[in-house]
Write a protein that binds this DNA or RNA. Structure first.
Length: 794
DNA sequence: ACACCTCGAGGTCG
DNA sequence: CTCGAGGTGT
């Protein structure tokens, strides 16, 4: 069933279709305890049907699912009739709907800003408990709201449910309603046991179904093994006793009588108060020990409740305000392959747009071919989509029943969709790669995009689109070409691109601005940004080159350690490997990159076109490099080259690289006597540069030990601590915070581990904060961080 | 085994 | 800004 076609259908036909689907879902959910569609999808269908029936009242049939709440109970348990039906609540999904809810109450009761009793909406199973003379006598599931199943023996196993009331003053007959649920911890523990049992115990799908399934066990001993809990939230039949006049007071009474009532229940004034409560609970949601799918607002005044009454079976005095669904159902329209900077071919699912967890999702990464195979996702499939950690959209699973008949398993294409080169997956690797390297337009674009990135060369205004245009129209084939672009080139390019696309952006036409003028501004800005980027640091430059395995952190290590591009670009890998945190794999990758003549040429071109490295680390690192070189020269026992002279030579050149290229004249210019200069040059000529650099290895290694000691001396208050930043900081940017922390000696890492000293949590911090809590890592808020900075100026 | 880094991806907001 | 997979380093 494809819902993209649904809107085109006749209302009557659509209503019939909706009914059939909802009834089917009801059956699977309530009778079989084996739901086949997510709750959100069910809600959506139901809302659509309600809307349809509201618009066309003549379409309402007696058997419509809107005319009742659930499906018939299964025959396995005795049926219990609820003398007072168990309610179902109307749903609100937006602030506007909550305000509308309040407005209706205000109008009908002629009150202002009514007081609401507010509580979390537990994701479990509603039940009803009957107490005669204070003794628990019978318990039942909600069923369809009218009739439920008697599950008294199972309920008796739940320790949160009192078998005998406490305190005093309870009515002779008391029916208490609430929710049976499975706390997350219990759910996890149970599933761990299930996994360990290797198939003997079936793992539970989710806490909600777990609660439902557990209560419907025919053998209460099985129920007893399930970690179930209970919260009370309402009353049913009450005979022979006085009750308070408000819902909140009723809940208090229930607590006194021994029922668990959530700590999170509260009261709130008006829609504004309710919305504030919604935000407050929503913020805590992930940290709660149980699942909730929203909050419930109930008019606190019971007399008011009676006056408002019901529409059908839903009360006018209460509403459930649901959180955005975290899982949704949609269809896969295509599976595309993206080619990354390194050629990595990543499959991505293009989805029919769907609203999940508060945002519209149209794409979901499938990571790699293995993942696609694991899920068996095919084009045309109906899938469940979730936002992992509430952020990154991912495909959870496919619904095989909805698979179109001729869908074929997906396969990684054999050739790059951009350049046609072979896509190859190396033995033992997970990622498949396009082998086109820089002949592949996609890789070129990505390489330039990376080069221009804020944390690399920081060329503002150079987006992916323009890079594509510049490349396709032949203006830029390597990053070095960026620095020979002139204003005219950009304008010409823009004009040709617009001609090719046959478009001038619509909003420009509308606003009446001359497109040429906008293009001029863009071109001017870009030229200026490129100009700015010419002055950069060594670590940014190295990072920008996009060497495999060289990210920011490795680039910085290289910069700090060697301090000199001319040196680094000629270093053999065994020397590179001396740097802490650089191992054989990375060292070889760097070596291999610089061995490519094309890459060396790009670097030469960049320098020739004005890229200058202003290196903050140079002095100490350069000194180290000089000393290393000097000691190699010394040990070479070159005639007449004393230790002092060797140091003099090393110091006279900007870099070792420059020195290695020096001829006798230049050496003499550095102050060496002519014969010594000749001898040194002879030495340099007989050993090629790489060989000489290799000879530095020993010297560098010794220096490394020395520097390690020196680093420990320049100690800050946070020396030796590892800090992780998460969430949004308001007073300063992340980069500023990072810089300051580093200045104080801290190491700023990207992920939380037990070695983390503390986590700084800003606004809307995510999973890293959870992880920190889990590991018991100290957590700082922004205020504390700022206070610390004030206490420890840099 | 564990910690950390790289690389790629998606969505929002100004 | 964030997540997750896959790798590398030690």
């Amino acid at each position: 069933m494809n819902r993209t076609h649904a809107v085109d259908m006749e209302p009557a036909a659509r209503a019939a279709e909706l009914r059939a689907r909802i009834e089917d879902a009801n059956h699977r959910y309530h009778v079989l305890d084996d739901p086949d569609i997510p709750d959100a999808e069910y809600d959506r269908l139901m809302r659509e049907l309600v809307a349809l029936e509201t618009a066309h009242p003549e379409l309402v049939t007696p058997d419509s699912p809107t005319q009742r709440v659930g499906a018939a109970p299964s025959g396995a348990f005795a049926t219990v009739r609820h003398e007072i039906p168990m309610l179902s609540l109307g749903n609100a999904f937006s602030d506007a709907e909550v305000e509308e809810f309040e407005r209706r109450i205000e109008q009908r009761l002629e009150v202002r800003d009514p007081l609401f009793s507010v509580e979390p909406k537990f994701d479990g199973l509603a039940i009803s408990l009957r107490y005669d003379d204070g003794m628990f006598v019978r318990g039942a599931t909600r069923g369809d709201g009218e009739k439920g199943e008697e599950v008294t023996p199972n309920l008796r196993t739940i320790k949160a449910i009192p078998l005998k009331l406490r305190g005093k003053g309870w009515p002779r007959v008391l029916e208490v309603r609430g929710e049976v649920y499975m706390p997350r911890a219990g759910f996890e523990r149970y599933n761990e046991k299930a996994r360990a049992s290797e198939g003997r115990i079936k793992p539970l799908v989710n806490p909600r179904n777990a609660a439902a399934g557990s209560l419907r066990q025919l053998d209460p001993r099985i129920t007893a093994q399930r970690p179930l809990a209970f919260y009370a939230y309402a009353l049913g039949v009450v005979e022979g006793g006085e009750l308070p006049a408000t819902h909140s007071a009723t809940l208090k009474k229930l607590r006194e009588w021994g029922f668990p009532v959530s700590e999170l229940v509260d009261t709130a004034r008006g829609a504004a108060g309710c919305l504030a409560y919604y935000a407050r609970i929503g913020a805590q949601r992930d940290a709660l020990p149980f699942d909730i799918d929203g909050v419930v607002y109930k008019l606190d005044d019971l007399a008011g409740q009676r006056e408002l009454g019901f529409v059908g079976r839903t009360p006018r005095w209460a509403i459930a305000h649901k959180f955005p669904a975290q899982e949704q159902q949609t269809t896969v329209e295509a599976i595309d392959v993206n080619i990354g900077r390194t050629g990595a071919a990543t499959p991505t699912a293009r989805l029919a747009p769907v609203f999940v967890g508060g945002v519209t999702v149209t794409n979901a990464t499938l990571h790699n071919a293995d993942q696609v195979a694991r899920l068996d996702v095919r084009v045309g499939d109906t899938v469940i989509v979730r936002r992992a950690g509430d952020v990154i959209p991912e495909v959870v699973r496919v619904i095989p029943e909805h698979r179109p008949p001729h869908a074929k398993p997906w396969q990684m294409p054999a050739h790059c969709p951009i350049c046609g080169s072979d896509i190859v997956r190396e033995e033992g690797e997970v990622v498949a790669r396009c082998t086109g390297e820089l002949t592949c337009a996609a890789q070129r674009v990505q390489a330039i995009f990376h080069f221009a990135a804020r944390r690399a060369m920081d060329i503002d205004g150079l987006g992916e689109r323009y890079i594509e245009d510049l490349g396709e129209l032949g203006y830029v084939t390597s990053v070095a070409d960026l620095y020979k672009l002139r204003l005219d080139d950009l304008l010409e390019m823009k004009r040709r691109a617009d001609e090719r696309d046959g478009t001038t952006p619509a909003h420009l036409l509308k606003s009446g601005v001359k497109a040429g003028k906008v293009a001029t501004k863009w071109a001017e800005n870009l030229i200026e940004a490129i100009g700015h980027s010419r002055r950069t640091t060594l670590e940014r430059f190295l990072y920008a080159l996009g060497i495999e395995h060289v990210g920011e952190s490795t680039a910085k290590a290289l910069a700090v350690w060697f301090g000199d591009l001319a040196l680094i670009r000629h270093l053999p890998w065994p020397i590179l490997k001396l740097v802490p945190d650089i191992g054989g794999e990375v060292a070889r990758a760097i070596d291999a990159f610089f061995q490519q003549p094309g890459n060396q040429k790009v670097i030469d071109d960049l320098i020739a076109r004005g890229v200058t490295i202003i290196d903050m680390h140079a002095p100490s690192a350069k000194l180290r490099a000089e000393l290393a070189m000097a000691s190699v020269l010394e040990q070479a026992e070159i005639p007449k080259l004393t230790a002092k002279r060797a140091e003099q030579v090393a110091a006279a050149f900007d870099s070792i690289g420059a020195m290695l290229k020096a001829d006798a004249v230049a050496l003499a210019g550095a102050g060496l006597p002519r014969d010594t200069a000749d001898a040194v040059q002879a030495f340099i000529v007989t050993h090629d540069g790489r060989d000489l650099l290799l000879r530095c290895e020993h010297a560098v290694e010794q220096l490394r030990a020395a520097t390690a000691g020196a680093a420990a001396i320049e100690t800050g208050p946070l020396e030796g601590s590892t800090v992780v930043l998460t969430g949004t900081l308001s007073g300063l940017t992340r980069d500023e915070a990072k810089a300051k922390l580093e200045a104080l000696g801290a190491k700023v890492a990207g992920s939380v581990s037990k070695k983390t000293s503390f986590v700084v949590a800003g606004e809307s911090a995510g999973s890293k904060l959870d992880k920190a809590r889990e590991l018991g890592v100290e957590i700082w808020d922004e205020e504390r961080l700022l206070a610390f900075f004030i206490g420890h100026p840099t």
